[in-house]
Simulated assay, not measured.
Amino acid sequence: MAALKFCANISWLFTELPEFTQRLQAAASAGFRAVEAAWLYDCDITKLVDAKTQAGLEVVLLNTPPGDMKAGDLGLGAVPGREQEFRKGLELAVQYAKALDCKRIHLMAGRVPVGADRSAVAMEMEATFVQNLKHAADVLSKEGMLGLIEPINTRITDPLYFLNSPHQAADILQKVSHSSVKLQMDVYHWQIMDGNLTQNIRKYFPLIGHVQIAQVPGRNEPDSAGELNFPYLFSLLEELGYQGYIGCEYKPLGTTIQMQHTRSTSQLTNTPSVR
């Protein structure tokens, strides 16, 4: 049984360091072999590549650009009328991913427009998302990359996010019907929206292309106080034969570096087979 592998999400961890290039080195110094990030598009590609190479890290995952966050955007994949912006964002994401040798891109769905009734726009948004995902699948398959869609909970994190449950995501993936787009499972969001993690993980495991973790409800370290039993969940993923990285996308209770002094990677995850 292969040991699980963990990567640091440097948009959430090591934020005491202002530059992503610094966080790459900090992640390597903390013992991580790989990292993921949300958006690196304000950073010079050459500097990122140099920092990644010097740190000896693999970059596992990037997100597509969010759009205009000041105007309320958080992804464009399912937003009607923004198809060309989504495609341009995908091009930029692929450019960064190729430079960093990153093989996974989270294709962000986006939010229900402010003031719109979710049920009234659901069909149009789904059709837009499916169309954009089919386009992305064609682009990414030619690059040897994998696209991912991630349900984000609407109870705590983002009430307007369009894609909010694994069931909805699985239905959309069935309509896209392409092996270059899979499901990104963040157990934090899944627990808040639906619970029933054991059965949902078993049911949707064939669709899962990436995993992320954080404790519920505080979205802190997996070994902090909360309702999720991570040793059990990790054992389940090992049993199912999960081969990819598990992204540490959580809010440290202290600074990341401070917490690293008191936790080794194995202590962080509380399972002996982690590497």
Rank of each mutant, 00 (worst) to 15 (best):
P151L: 10
K52A: 08
V114H: 14
A55E: 06
P206N: 12
Q260D: 15
N132A: 03
N164T: 14
N63F: 00
T157G: 01
L148G: 02
T46M: 11
A214F: 12
E83I: 01
F20Y: 14
R263Q: 12
T271A: 15
A51H: 08
T154K: 05
G144C: 07
L17T: 02
G247Q: 10
Y96F: 15
Q199G: 00
F86G: 02
F6Q: 06
L148K: 02
G247W: 07
F20H: 13
L160G: 01
G72K: 06
K88R: 12
A97L: 06
G241T: 07
G110T: 10
Y161F: 13
M259V: 06
G110H: 07
K47F: 13
M69C: 05
K103Q: 14
M125F: 06
N220K: 15
L236C: 01
N153A: 09
T154F: 05
G147R: 08
L13Y: 09
M259T: 12
A3K: 06
E16P: 03
N63H: 00
F162S: 02
N9A: 00
M185A: 09
W12I: 00
L233K: 06
G72S: 03
R263L: 12
G254C: 14
T256P: 05
P231G: 11
A214Y: 11
N229Y: 14
N200S: 08
A122C: 00
D50T: 10
V130K: 01
D186Y: 07
M193I: 10
I10D: 01
V112C: 08
F162V: 10
K142D: 13
E83F: 03
A137F: 07
A37H: 03
K175V: 03
L140D: 03
L240R: 04
Y232A: 15
L107K: 11
N270Y: 06
V94Y: 07
T53A: 08
L207R: 10
Y245C: 04
A169E: 09
P272T: 10
P80M: 02
N200W: 02
E124K: 15
L173R: 10
E249K: 10
N164E: 15
L92N: 07
I257T: 13
Q215F: 00
A71G: 07
L197M: 13
P252I: 08
Y188R: 06
E143M: 10
F205Q: 04
L76H: 03
Q22C: 01
D223R: 07
K52T: 13
G72A: 04
R104D: 07
P80A: 08
I152Q: 13
A97H: 03
W12G: 00
M108Y: 04
G144Q: 04
T256K: 04
A122Q: 07
T46W: 09
A120N: 01
I257E: 08
A8R: 02
W39P: 01
G209Y: 12
G244A: 04
E126N: 05
I156V: 15
M259W: 13
R263A: 05
Q212H: 12
C102M: 00
D186H: 08
K70T: 05
G209L: 08
L107R: 08
E227T: 14
E227N: 12
V181G: 12
L17E: 03
T157Q: 04
D171P: 05
M185C: 03
Q260A: 14
A136I: 07
F234W: 15
L40D: 05
S273D: 14
P166D: 05
E239D: 11
S180H: 12
L92Y: 04
W39I: 14
V112R: 01
G56T: 06
M145H: 13
F129Q: 04
W190T: 06
A127Y: 00
